[in-house]
Design a protein around this nucleic acid. Structure first.
Lengths: 195, 195
DNA sequence: GTCTATAGGGGGATAGAC
DNA sequence: GTCTATCCCCCTATAGAC
C-alpha cells in the first residue's frame, strides 16, 4: 500500500524552522508571531501546529539542534600533542563554526530568557559542557607549563566571549578573510594565556 | 502663586524608568507590557503616558542615559603617561562600570534590534565612540612600541567583548572579588597585546 | 495536511471625568 | 496627574470541514 499522506510534511517542517530561525534572529522570539512565520512559509497559522506543539517548542528545537551540532562538530576534532595546539584548534574551530551560523548563535545567546525553566536547564547544561572543554585545555596548558594564568574558569569564559564577539562585526565580504581573522585572534589568545 | 500641580511628578517618572529597566532586563522589551510596568509602579497604564510619549521612547531613554553615563564616566578619567597605563585604566574602568549596572548593560546589548532606525543610529554612534577610545589606546601602544598587534579595530573589539563577558557570570558574593577579577583580566589583556 | 473560523485573552494608546 | 473606560488591533492555540 502506497502512503498517500505526507506529501508536504517532509518539506514544510524544515521550512517552518528555517523561517522561525530567520525571524527570531532578526526581531526576537517575543516580537515574532506564529502568523508571521506561517506567512513566510506560505501556509496558514493553524498548519504550523502539525509540526510543533507550540511556539516555545519551536524555539527550543532550534537552540537544542544548534547546541547538539556544536558539540558533535567539536567532538569530531582530533586529539592534540600539546595544549597549545589544542587551544589553537579550539580558537579556529570556534570562530569558524560560529561565523557560519550567525542566526543560530544570535538566538542561542539572546533567547535564553525566553526558554521555559526546563528547556533553559537543558540548553544551559550543553553550553556548560562546551565551556568545560575549553577549561580542560587551559588546565592542561598549566600542567604542561605552557600557560600561566591564575584561574581556569575565567580564562575559558574570557576566551569564549572574545571569540564569539567576532559575530557582531564580521562580514565575509569585508576587509579581512575569515582565515586572517582567525590568525589575529589566535595570536591574542596564545599570548593572553602564555607562560 | 504656589504651584499646586506636580505633587507626584518628580517621583513617578524615575519609578517608571526603574520598573521598565528591571522588567526589560528580565523579560525583554517585546515581552513586557505597559500594563506590567504600571502595575510595578502602582499606577494605571494610562498614567504612564504622562511621562513617556510611547513605549519605544521609554526604551530609548534608558539606553541613551546609559550610554551618556558611560561616556562621561570614561571622560572623567585622567590622562596617562603610557599606553600600557591607559589600557590598564580602561580595563579596570570597563569591568567596574559595567558590573555596577548589569540591567542597563544587558538592555544595551539585547534590545538594539527593538530600537527604531533613528534611535538605533543614535545609540550605535555612542557605542562606536566608546570603541574608538579603546582603539586609540591600542594605536598609541603600537606607536610607543609597547604593543604588537597586526590590527587596531579587532583588538579593540576583542578586548571589549572579553571584558563585557564578565557580566554574564560575575556575582559580587562569589569566589572572587571584583578587584581580583579586574586583575586577572588585566593580566590577560596586557599579555594579549604586548610586544 | 491544510484550510477557515473562532475562542479567549492581551496589547498600545487615547478620551474625558475628577 | 491619575483614574476608568474604551477603541481597535493582534496574539496563541484549537475545532472541525475538506
Amino acid at each position: 500500500m502506497a502512503r498517500t499522506q505526507g506529501s508536504h510534511s517532509d518539506i514544510t517542517g524544515p521550512r517552518i524552522r528555517a523561517a522561525a530561525l530567520q525571524l527570531f534572529a532578526r526581531h526576537g522570539y517575543a516580537a515574532v508571531s506564529m502568523r508571521q512565520i506561517a506567512k513566510e512559509v506560505g501556509v496558514q497559522a493553524g498548519a504550523l501546529y502539525n509540526y510543533t506543539p507550540d511556539k516555545q517548542s519551536l524555539l527550543f528545537r532550534l537552540m537544542r539542534t544548534h547546541m547538539d551540532e556544536l558539540l558533535s562538530a567539536r567532538a569530531a576534532r582530533g586529539d592534540f600533542a600539546t595544549a597549545v595546539e589544542a587551544l589553537e584548534d579550539f580558537t579556529r574551530f570556534h570562530i569558524r563554526f560560529h561565523s557560519e551560523r550567525p542566526e543560530e548563535v544570535f538566538i542561542a545567546y539572546m533567547e535564553l530568557r525566553n526558554l521555559s525553566p526546563d528547556n533553559f536547564a537543558t540548553i544551559e547544561a550543553l553550553r556548560r559542557q562546551y565551556e568545560d572543554e575549553l577549561e580542560a585545555i587551559v588546565q592542561r596548558g598549566i600542567s604542561e607549563g605552557a600557560f600561566a594564568v591564575s584561574d581556569t574558569k575565567i580564562p575559558a569564559m574570557a576566551v569564549i566571549a572574545m571569540l564569539t564577539g567576532v559575530n557582531t562585526w564580521f562580514s565575509s565580504g569585508g576587509r579581512l578573510s575569515l582565515d586572517e581573522v582567525e590568525t589575529i585572534y589566535w595570536n591574542m589568545v596564545r599570548k593572553a594565556v602564555a607562560a
